[in-house]
Design a binder for these strands. Structure first.
Lengths: 212, 212
DNA sequence: CGAACCCTTGATACGCTTCAACAAGAGTGG
DNA sequence: CCACTCTTGTTGAAGCGTATCAAGGGTTCG
């Protein structure tokens, strides 16, 4: 997909609203009426549900630059989920009305929008598939490979950018289970763990472990 | 959303390709290049993965009229999942190229398209949420309530339109577990089961059971 | 009538959670 | 600087939820 042309960029810039969000501060709330498409420009935002009392139940996290919620605003309802900044973040709001305007003015914009939405669907499809068919170990290994941007084989290293409990939450397991799985993988000689630094010693083997 | 105008309908009819699919026959295949948006006009189609050897692993099912895959075609890749007709079905293919044409010609079409895609995202969000946070009983009860189009309270009845094993697959549980859960709910006096006919005796209680 | 499905039921096994305890670091205040 | 607390990750023991395996009964269909 070609980069945005100058006039497209200018039109976009005129429409977006930027806001800086402090670590831990809310970005979206469940009951809020969805009038904007929301993206994370920079930083890390957690998406999940915030029960009235409980702390905050993370379901997945979004690292900028990336769309946070590109679909709710088209439904005319509310966002349906809560979002909190994990670290200091820059968030972008783009009113639906402005988007309608933009796509009618710049045909390429429509392709970008549809592409992004389709990508969201694709990603969610993958998540549900994994939750339905893969056990915790498979899901963790798949996550590690994805997070490391793993090449085809050999070894790879990565540094965790979130607390392990947050990673566990996204994998729908408890922190205890995550810890045990890490140890088991270490004992099998597949990975090496030093705090938040993890070495993937055998990408090929890990890849086959994570397959359905 | 207003109904389609006559000229919109005519343009649509000119673009779509219809095909009748026999029960059990493939509708989509994983490796197939996605050039169309695909919808089920009438009938029931199962969406899932068909490993080379194994029978067919159902993940969710789509009853017409409803979109089957409205997003893959925008990504320029393949469909990524397999689909098979559960019963005799009428399937509609709508080429992406035609859709681009249509939305540029009829602005309302764009809203319909975006609305449908957003609805897909919303639905998938709900599914992942349930898989992450609800146990099998909660998921089943939620499914029953949804399938019955349950009102606010009182009692409700429904007739299953799929084999129980297919329902179980969509709930990510085994048929055995589904059977046991049904019996437990019956013993609690919440439902009544006679083959494929199910009575929801206490919708209010069921609703609170299915909550997170 | 047998064969092929489907659903159900029971016994057992396993994966993951829960609960509890502990170690290691980070921040805070005396 | 040390004691104190808070948070995070780790480990172990016990228990729950669901899968697996095996068997039996009910239908439908040839």
């Amino acid at each position: 997909m070609p980069p945005l042309a100058r006039d497209e960029l200018e039109a976009l810039n005129a429409a977006v609203k930027l806001r800086q969000v402090a670590a831990g501060a809310p970005v979206l709330s469940r009951q809020q009426h969805a009038e904007d498409l929301v993206a994370v420009v920079d930083g890390l935002v957690g998406l999940g549900l915030a029960p009235d009392d409980a702390p905050f139940h993370l379901e997945r996290s979004v690292r900028g630059p990336r769309w946070l919620d590109i679909s709710s605003a088209w439904l005319g309802g509310d966002y349906g989920q809560d979002a909190r900044a994990v670290g200091e973040s820059l968030v972008l709001d783009l009113p639906v009305r402005a988007v309608r305007q933009l796509v009618s003015q710049f045909p390429d914009m429509l392709d970008r929008l549809l592409f992004a939405m389709a990508h969201t669907v694709h990603s969610l499809n993958g998540i549900t598939h994994d939750l339905m068919h893969k056990d915790a170990e498979k899901r963790l290994v798949a996550w590690l490979l994805h997070a490391s941007g793993a090449s085809t084989s050999g070894s790879e290293s990565l540094v965790l950018k979130e607390r392990k409990r947050d990673i566990a939450a996204q994998l729908a397991i408890t922190p205890e289970t995550l810890s045990r799985l890490m140890r088991q993988l270490t004992l099998k000689g597949l990975i090496e763990v030093q705090g938040y630094r993890i070495e993937l010693l055998d990408v090929a083997a890990l890849r086959s472990l994570s397959a359905d």
